[in-house]
């Protein structure tokens, strides 16, 4: 890496190797989940429960639904996401899997991106199930392209900062209670614009109302991904 003899080919090879490492970590998580299905089923049942509890707590009649749908959806995603993040990192730690991953001769940030993409994939799967179920139960059409875009952007930011914080939380003594406390205040700059943008899409507001929120959301996606990319090394260092 220190010599610059053939920078063009070596940098191309390095990029390919890096992407392969990211893909390998991602594939490991997906394959393990495909066989056990313990994470997705827990997240899914939990998410459905949250929606049903909201129904009792908020009396989701037609008038209320108009204004609170975006909030209910994002709180559900955030709670289910926390469950998934905690579990996906706890698995690595419990069975000494993290040490094995750290021994692999790849850049540490490749591990981060692999885990983050895995967490993002789980969140998106849950959302892909929750959105139609919510539409069906409450008779709201949630299949608007703008809404799906907002959900994707929000999940990216959530998974980006959540993966970093959950890898810290699992190494602490109070790990089970720590993740939500660490995550929720920090992820608010993602959640607030996500809720507001979802609301704007659902109420059919014009683009001028929507764009400030989308800009904020995209900005924080980039900020959190970049910060986690730079800081992950220090979190897993032994």
């Amino acid at each position: 890496m220190t010599s610059g003899a053939a920078p063009a080919t070596s940098s191309g090879q390095r990029t390919r190797g890096y992407l392969r490492a990211v893909g390998a970590v991602l594939w490991k998580d997906l394959a393990a989940e495909l066989r056990s299905r313990e994470l997705l089923s827990a997240m899914l049942v939990f998410a459905l429960l949250v929606i049903l509890v909201f129904n009792f707590a908020l009396e989701l009649d037609l008038a209320t639904r108009q204004t609170v749908t975006s909030g209910v959806l994002w709180v559900t995603f955030a709670f289910a996401g926390t469950l998934g993040l905690n579990r996906s990192m706890a698995v690595e730690r419990d069975r000494g899997c993290l040490d094995g991953l750290l021994l692999a001769p790849v850049d540490r940030s490749a591990l981060y991106f692999g885990k983050a993409l895995g967490n993002l994939a789980f969140m998106l799967i849950i959302e892909a199930i929750i959105l139609p179920v919510y539409s069906l139960l409450y008779n709201v059409n949630l299949f608007l392209p703008g809404l799906l875009g907002v959900v994707l952007l929000g999940s990216i930011g959530y998974a980006a900062v959540g993966t970093l914080l959950s890898s810290m939380a699992v190494q602490a003594r109070t790990r089970d209670v720590l993740l939500p406390i660490l995550l929720f205040p920090v992820v608010l700059p993602v959640l607030i614009p996500a809720v507001k943008a979802t609301n704007a899409v659902l109420l059919g507001l014009e683009a001028a109302e929507l764009w400030p929120w989308l800009n904020l959301l995209i900005a924080y996606d980039v900020i959190f991904t970049a910060a986690a990319f730079m800081l992950f090394d220090f979190v897993v260092e032994e």
Binding site: V161, L164, L165, M168, Q171, A172, L182, P185, V186, L188, P189, I192, Y220, I223, F224, A227, A228, L231, F234, V235, E237
Partner: peptide
């Protein structure tokens, strides 16, 4: 180390 990481990530929410 964790304190430092969280202080940096947390500060990113302050500009908000």
């Amino acid at each position: 180390r964790f304190g430092a990481v969280y202080a940096i990530v947390g500060f990113l929410s302050v500009p908000l």
